[in-house]
């Protein structure tokens, strides 16, 4: 599953590039959510063991052979909560965008130059 690792890496890079070069505030937030997806893909891939099944017990995965048959449950658990937090953080960023727009009537990052060097 090296391919998903590479995919996550490419998504991370596209998102970072978007955050650094785009002028529109919405595009910056979209770049952030693409980075989020890429990082989650990488973490889940690291927990994957080829040929093994989901960490849930059923008829085939019995308590006796569970350790030999399941993938790593810890990355799944971490990513699970991280996705929910990602939504809340995205909503927080978007509400800042709306507030900024109310103030200055502009979506371009170029118009907010208080901290420009």
């Amino acid at each position: 599953m090296r391919y998903t690792l590479i995919l996550g890496f490419i998504l991370f890079m596209i998102g970072l590039w978007a955050m650094l070069t785009r002028k529109n505030l919405f595009k910056i937030v979209i770049g952030f959510s693409i980075i989020d997806t890429g990082v989650h893909l990488i973490i889940v891939t690291i927990g994957y063991l080829s040929g093994k099944t989901a960490p849930i017990l059923d008829k085939l995965v019995t308590p006796a052979n569970a350790v030999q048959k399941v993938v790593d449950p810890i990355p799944s658990a971490l990513v699970l909560t991280a996705i929910v937090i990602g939504l809340a953080v995205t909503a927080l960023m978007l509400s800042y965008v709306v507030r900024l727009y109310k103030r200055r009537k502009s979506l371009s990052i170029e118009d907010y130059r208080e901290l420009k060097w």
């Binding site: 690291i46 063991l49 960490p55 849930i56 350790v67 699970l80």
Partner: peptide, 26 residues
């Protein structure tokens, strides 16, 4: 890319089956 669980994960898997009786290990 590993092909077997590390110590911590296999400990969690064993514990959640024997100690907690939880079918979904996540």
């Amino acid at each position: 890319l590993k092909d077997s669980l590390n110590e911590l994960s296999s400990g969690y898997v064993e514990k959640s089956v024997s100690d907690l009786k939880t079918a979904n290990i996540v």
